[in-house]
Nucleic acid binder design. Structure first.
Lengths: 248, 248
DNA sequence: GCGTGTGAAGTTATTCACAGCG
DNA sequence: CGCTGTGAATAACTTCACACGC
């Protein structure tokens, strides 16, 4: 509580980074995943003409408590206005700055199968600060084709193109067999973050960030959730259940 | 994730006696997401001919500690063999049972754009117990086409087809504008779980499970991770830190 | 009044450390 | 021995509750 070394009632959000958060504190992982959701919801709210939003409204929209929303945001600085709430435009800018999407990221996609084409055509990337600047595939019949305005190049051109265009993030939509090799090559060419869709665990050198999305895994999570809620619902009413399929 | 399996605020009266049966305990949320990764890795290990695996090996492969692996697995029962480790085949079967993928789930995909086609062609689903039995699109030019062996039907047929084929899980790959309506209709037709790829927050009735995947959100997580590790690297240039950001 | 920011309390998840078994 | 399962200790996260500014 005694953090009034700098008691500045004036905050100019459009320029300075909120230096309020302790320098030594590391970023709580769970918070960041919600930040993206806040941002998505804020853009929708803003688009609907609403100028300001309260933590409880934002929370209700996403299924979180109001306290959660405030804690999450307060972790990075003071963005709210007591009695008013959060000004959408201001908060959008603040979250973008935190997430690092206030600048443009140049990304490359490797693997132009079904999934790769889906990524190439995904409009949500551009609007959030990600520009797809290159696509690669080892299948020569795909080379030269264009998807979403991006021409497919042979994988042999990976290194030079990544360097030439200043690609910093790589999306891997290849087969699991080639994913690790592609990751290694992209990193060697200067990529510092990888979004991996191949269903395999990649091992990367320190300093390179990794986010993995496995479609089968997501469905398994859903399977578990469904099986579990149904089991809970069945348990709800029956004190004795003679026909329960033996778990063992 | 806004909505997962919500837990009934019911007090558990019996807690003193060690209920040996694994059924009856609360669902630990974070554990389940790792279960899928264990499964994926186990299948690879098994495929390579290895019969047994230790918690430390499995952990090292995925970037977890050995204790984490053991705790996760022990939560659902006793699958290990002291001095030996875990027998792959045995553990695979056990995890499948926990996740609910030991039976077949019938799934439908709505929205046959780039992403929907990618999902239709994804081979990883079938091998993990998910059978894509139907696909819908409101674009009449796509109706009648076939992707991955599944014929595209008009969205008007959604209710009858879902009922006829016993679809229980729905994948939404539509525009964000129609996602909520599609979800409502699928649920009314009997779907009990939804995997949502549309970048919008869905509100679902209790009893229906939801998993959401937002591609832009995933990239934002990566952006944050990269910006953060770079900032950390710049801050501490001279300090030697062997435990930098772990994999995944 | 409304609505934020934040310590304190409460809850959940992870790591430690070691008993026990093949 | 090696390796699991698990209580105890630790850390991370979430909710509560309330002071304070608008």
């Amino acid at each position: 509580m005694p953090n009034e070394t700098e008691h500045d009632p004036h905050d100019d959000p459009a320029k300075a980074l909120p230096a309020k958060a302790d320098e030594g504190k590391l970023p709580p992982k769970a918070v960041v995943s919600r930040l993206s959701l806040y941002l998505r919801e804020l853009l929708r709210i803003e688009h609907s003409g609403q100028q300001t939003v309260s933590s409880s409204q934002l929370g209700k929209l996403l299924g979180f408590t109001d306290a959660q929303v405030r804690k999450d945001l307060a972790y990075f600085g003071q963005f709210g206005h007591p009695g008013v709430g959060y000004r959408c435009e201001e908060l959008v800018a603040a979250i973008r700055k935190i997430l690092g999407t206030d600048r443009e990221w140049v990304v490359a996609i490797v693997g132009v199968g079904n999934l790769g084409r889906a990524l190439l055509g995904y409009k949500g990337f551009r609007s959030q600060g990600f520009r797809v600047a290159a696509a690669f595939d080892s299948d020569s019949s795909k080379v030269g084709m264009s998807f979403g305005g991006v021409a497919v190049e042979p994988t042999t051109a990976l290194e030079t193109t990544i360097r030439d265009r200043g690609v910093t993030l790589g999306l891997i939509a290849t087969s699991p067999e080639s994913a690790q090799e592609i990751a290694d090559r992209m990193i060697a060419a200067g990529v510092v973050g990888i979004l991996n869709f191949a269903p395999v665990t990649l091992s990367l050198p320190p300093g390179v960030s990794l986010v993995g999305v496995d479609l089968a895994t997501e469905l398994e999570q859903l399977s578990f959730a469904v099986a579990n809620t149904q089991a809970a619902a069945a348990r709800e009413d029956s004190a004795e259940d003679p026909l329960t399929s033996g778990p063992e």
